Amino acid sequence: MKYLVTGAAGFIGSAVSERLCALGHKVVGIDNLNDYYQVSLKHDRLKRIEHEHFTFIELDLADREGIAGLFAEQKFDRVIHLAAQAGVRYSIDNPMAYADSNLVGHLTILEGCRHHKIQHLVYASSSSVYGLNQKMPFDTADSVDHPISLYAATKKSNELMAHTYSHLYGVPTTGLRFFTVYGPWGRPDMALFKFTNAIIKGDSIDVYNNGDMRRDFTYIDDIVEGIVRIQDVIPEKNIDWTVEQGSPATSSAPYKVYNIGNGSPVKLMDYIESLESSLGIEAKKNFMPMQPGDVYATYADTADLFKATGYKPQVNVREGVQAFVDWYKDYFKV
């Protein structure tokens, strides 16, 4: 089949593109190559996907005419929409960037899917939509009406927009709420990358909420496996579904939302200890209060995704952190 992958120079997008090509699919990847972090890393990710089935086009999601023209010209079968302005903390100081990428950009993709009869749109949501929820594990049947960052609010908005297009136009949509993805070729603004860089340099690392946090860290290969599998599980209409009796993760429209995570939260200090062990260096720790927009813990209930796809994460934190460290040392020659 022919896929559009948005955010193809990104951490997850590049890995998904590479996997789809290896499976024999044709992939057109787009990315605006913005400078939220070093563009050289994005270019190097793209070099990994040098494959006869892969075509890269530099294009901004907010370019309405450009995206419309892309859909008209390329005739995609399916779309995996992973591009977004990422980062909870960055959204505190740069809110407008999230409106352009995450709201306008999501709408241009929905419009392309609507007008060109796309078989299935899979898009990135986020565990951050759970906001003030405290019941663990997070379940897609739970209410997600109280986000605590603009980033989270845009991701919740993406789910609402997708449902509208599924209902009005019959576009099959699946949203995936990602839980703390990490691994080789990861984002430099994520904790593992920042911690590794600081520890190797001998600098201290900022440990928020005095280290009393838990995250459902999920290794990149496990995430890619889940995405590729869910592509083949196309939502269908369910005429018996009602708002009053049904889960908000499904609908009478061809619409579905899943958690995609490891399903096993890890203490932040245990994560740091795994990194120290892999590096053979003890970190200097600067204990800090909780940051605005952060949540104390994330924990995914992935039972629905497992039932639909057989998806079950295979990589534990110690293995995943070691794989990242090995990549980091090789990439940066340290």
Rank of each mutant, 00 (worst) to 15 (best):
Y3N: 02
V5C: 11
A8S: 15
F11K: 03
F11E: 01
G13H: 00
G13A: 00
A15M: 14
E18Q: 14
H25A: 11
K26V: 03
V27Q: 03
V28H: 08
I30Q: 04
N32C: 13
D35I: 01
S40Q: 12
L41W: 05
K42A: 01
H43S: 05
R45V: 03
K47A: 13
I49S: 07
F56D: 06
L59G: 01
D60K: 15
I67K: 07
G69M: 00
G69T: 00
G69S: 05
A72I: 04
A72C: 10
K75T: 02
F76P: 00
H81C: 10
A86H: 09
G87H: 11
R89M: 10
D93V: 00
A97S: 09
D100S: 14
S101E: 11
N102S: 07
V104A: 08
V104N: 07
G105H: 07
L107E: 15
T108G: 08
G112I: 08
C113M: 09
R114M: 13
H115G: 10
H115D: 14
H116G: 09
K117F: 12
K117N: 15
L121N: 13
V122H: 01
V122T: 12
A124I: 04
S126Y: 14
S127I: 12
S128K: 10
S128T: 15
L132P: 03
N133G: 09
T140I: 15
T140F: 09
H146V: 12
P147F: 06
A152N: 09
K155W: 02
K156E: 00
S157E: 06
S157K: 02
Y165E: 06
L168S: 12
Y169E: 02
G170V: 15
G170H: 05
V171A: 06
G175D: 02
F178C: 04
F178N: 02
F179L: 05
P184S: 12
P188S: 13
A191E: 01
L192T: 04
K194A: 10
K194S: 08
F195K: 01
F195G: 02
T196W: 00
I199V: 11
I200P: 00
D203L: 11
V207E: 04
Y208Q: 10
Y208N: 12
N210H: 09
N210Y: 07
G211V: 04
G211L: 13
D212Y: 09
M213R: 14
D216N: 07
F217T: 03
F217A: 07
Y219G: 02
Y219E: 05
D221P: 01
E225D: 14
Q231D: 10
V233F: 05
I234M: 08
E236D: 08
E236Q: 15
N238A: 02
D240E: 12
W241T: 05
T242M: 03
E244I: 12
E244Y: 11
Q245K: 14
S251Y: 04
A253N: 03
N259K: 13
N259S: 09
I260E: 08
P265S: 09
L268W: 11
L268E: 05
D270Q: 14
Y271T: 02
E276C: 08
E276W: 09
E276F: 05
A283I: 00
K284T: 15
F287K: 04
M290T: 14
A297Y: 00
T298R: 04
Y299N: 08
A303P: 03
D304Q: 13
K307C: 02
T309A: 10
Y311P: 03
R318H: 14
Q322V: 03
Q322N: 12
V325Y: 01
W327C: 07
W327H: 08
K329C: 11
D330C: 10
K333E: 11
